[in-house]
């Protein structure tokens, strides 16, 4: 039963993507030696609102925007740092993402085929910045929709924070959405649901249950994301390259309104009460 030596080497050399900071994640996706950061910490473009509320800011406001090449083509990667304020979207953080997407669109209009990638590790809007955060999330949505006819917008949710709130809509708008098994994707986070609807509705501490409902594997099995990749930096970088090589999807998920309405109608709330039941109903093709 002892694992073969090659297996041990593989286990030892495995490079977890989840382990990496947002800055390291953006580096891991760009071709070696091409990474350069825009509006980095030394530009000190931090939130003007947090200090007024007695909260220590981070000099990049929790978003890393990096330019470089993917597969030899110009690219921009915007990565959210989930360790800072739960990856929440404040005015500066969100505007950095929206501006990056907008500049990528302008590149395309000038004939520069910039490839956009979003790392969506976020609880959603930053409550301390309220309406400004919501407004900028709407700008991100608009920027994705404006950019995606030019080039696939690739989103990645790696974990462990997950992607929630208004930013889950940003994830859903992406042309190609990649998740790991550790990712979670949903509108309201489990803790919010438990708080609002009670523990009988959802026990947020039951991790097996939570992942069976909104975890990466489940979301892939019911067709709400495009690709499930294991937590490995090289595998994820390869998945990103492959997504750009594959080009535009046949249609966007956000345009499949009749299909999703039909899927919703098919649900009997009395019967479909857990993850496996939804998989049985919505699962595309044969189950593994």
């Amino acid at each position: 039963m002892t694992a073969a030596v090659t297996d041990l080497d593989r286990l030892l050399s495995r490079k977890s993507f989840i382990e990496l900071s947002a800055r390291e994640r953006t580096k891991a996706l760009l071709d070696a030696g091409t990474w350069r950061e825009l509006l980095g910490p030394f530009d000190r473009l931090h939130s003007p609102w947090l200090e007024m509320q007695d909260i220590v800011p981070q000099e990049d406001d929790g978003v890393v925007v990096a330019r470089g090449l993917i597969d030899g083509q110009p690219a921009v990667v915007a990565g959210i740092e989930s360790a800072f304020q739960g990856g929440s979207m404040g005015e500066i953080a969100g505007m950095k993402i929206a501006a990056a997407l907008d500049l990528a669109r302008q590149d395309h209009e000038r004939g520069i085929p910039t490839r956009p990638v979003l790392l969506l590790e976020t609880g959603g809007v930053r409550l301390q910045e309220a309406n400004l955060g919501l407004a900028v999330i709407a700008e991100i949505h608009a920027a994705i929709i404006a950019l995606r006819p030019h080039v696939p917008v690739v989103g990645i949710i790696a974990g462990l924070v997950g992607c929630f709130g208004g930013m889950s809509l940003a994830a859903a708008l992406c042309s190609h959405l990649i998740v790991t098994p550790q990712a979670r994707l949903g509108m309201n986070g489990p803790e919010v649901i438990e708080q609002e609807a009670g523990i009988a509705e959802l026990d947020a501490s039951d991790k097996r249950l939570i992942w069976s409902l909104i975890g990466g594997e489940q979301r892939a099995a019911v067709g709400l994301v495009d690709q499930l990749v294991e937590d490995d930096a090289d595998a994820i970088a390869e998945a990103v390259r492959a997504a750009f090589r594959a080009g535009q999807p046949d249609s966007y998920r956000s345009q499949q309104i009749p299909q999703f309405l039909a899927r919703l109608v098919a649900i009997d709330p009395a019967l479909v009460t857990d993850g496996p039941a939804l998989r049985a109903l919505w699962g595309k093709g044969e189950q593994a």
């Binding site: 900071s21 910490p41 220590v56 981070q58 000099e59 360790a83 304020q85």
Partner: peptide, 18 residues
């Protein structure tokens, strides 16, 4: 030279040195 390390996350800090 300058350097940036760390993150403003629980039990951690960000250091900017220039």
């Amino acid at each position: 030279a300058r350097a940036h390390v760390g993150v403003v996350g629980s039990g951690d800090l960000e250091v900017l040195l220039e």
